[in-house]
């Protein structure tokens, strides 16, 4: 027997837990932090389930991280009058999700594919790990998991402490920065405020991040460290042709069902852009992609309204520029009626 007064024990426990949780939440809010969503497979699956909405009411976006920052979902929805479903995934190639949609006989909608060459054309299996996990989760999702997500989405935007990356038990332990043995890959440690996530899955850099040069430089340093990693040269020759062929196959499948596909190259700047231009020349990759798939595309450097953005950390737009960029691509799409005629 635990105690002769069991209810008193339960009440005391609840008071302690509630007190600790409230203090922790207030402490985090006192640091100026705001709640956001974890960019989890659950959130991705919630969006993935919406791709079957009618094509005239919905546009699906896939890509790597850039489109998640650069597309302002509210601006798109207000100006286009259609829903923007964000399925892009950070640090991954969109080809995996592309194939998943292409192989889904019920998907007949408009698809915009953002191309970050180093990831899009990568043959490395690592760039498919997180998309595969999310796709697998979506296809195996149980009614109980859907219901749990329904409850979770009510809590997450209200509590800062539910930020898994930084304030979960593992998040806190991993940010103790205990030195590692030489050669251990500890993952990419992006600073807080760099990838605040909305329910729409749009990423935004926070104001405090944008005002903090040290944190911006830390992200720039991460890009630099990635560039210095020993890796295979950019894919070319038959391996590139195989990738292009598989993309064309996916495009054709979607077209055959009446859907449309448009490619997008979102802005980058500074040394990042220089490196991309050297490694992945436009004519050898982007132009070849459009020629092979017979799709239309919007390359940021080809349009005056899109070509002068400066990314704070060289790779993603800040929230203000994301609105301008989104307006810019909408203008181009409307002017040239590209979305409706993307494949025709």
């Amino acid at each position: 027997m635990i105690t002769t007064r069991p209810l008193k024990l339960i009440v005391l426990t609840l008071v302690l837990v509630t007190g600790a949780a409230v203090c922790w939440e207030l402490f985090l809010r006192g640091k100026g932090l705001k709640p956001d969503f974890d960019d989890s497979p659950e959130l991705w699956a919630d969006k993935r389930a919406r791709v079957y909405e009618p094509a005239d009411k919905t546009t699906v976006f896939i890509g790597s991280s850039r489109i998640k920052y650069d597309l302002d979902v509210d601006t798109w929805q207000n100006l286009m009058g259609t829903n923007a479903i964000q399925l892009a995934m950070v640090g991954s190639s969109p080809r995996t999700i592309f194939s998943d949609l292409a192989n889904d006989p019920n998907f007949k909608g408009n698809l915009i594919v953002d191309v970050t060459e180093i990831l899009f054309f990568s043959p490395a299996p690592q760039v498919s790990i997180t998309p595969n996990e999310a796709i697998s989760y979506y296809h195996k999702r149980t009614p109980a998991q859907k219901a749990s997500f329904g409850l979770d989405k009510m809590l997450e935007p209200r509590l800062v402490m539910l930020d898994k990356d930084f304030y979960s038990l593992n998040g806190l332990l991993d940010h103790l920065y205990v030195p590692n043995r030489d050669g251990v890959y500890a993952g990419l440690d992006f600073p807080i405020g760099f990838h605040s996530t909305l329910f729409s899955r749009q990423n935004k850099m926070t104001d405090s991040f944008l005002a903090d040069t040290a944190r911006i430089n830390k992200v720039r340093g991460i890009w630099g460290s990635l560039a210095r990693l020993k890796s295979d040269p950019p894919v070319s020759g038959k391996a590139l042709d195989a990738i292009l062929f598989s993309v064309k196959h996916d495009v054709d499948q979607i077209r055959a069902r009446g859907g449309s596909v448009l490619f997008l190259r979102t802005p980058s700047s500074g040394p990042f852009l220089m490196g991309e231009k050297m490694g992945y020349p436009k004519e050898k990759y982007w132009d070849k992609l459009l020629a092979t798939t017979h799709c239309k595309g919007i390359y940021f450097g080809d349009h005056a309204s899109l070509s002068n953005f400066q990314c704070p950390e060289f790779s993603h737009l800040n929230p203000h520029d994301a609105v301008l960029y989104t307006k810019g691509i909408i203008d181009i799409l409307k002017k040239e009626n590209r979305l409706a005629t993307a494949i025709h």
Binding site: T3, L12, L16, V17, A20, L172
Partner: peptide
Amino acid sequence: SWSVALIWSAMLILIILSQ
């Protein structure tokens, strides 16, 4: 009882924190 309450609370807090 207060020890049980403390241990019980600690477990609950860590469950919440684990996410």
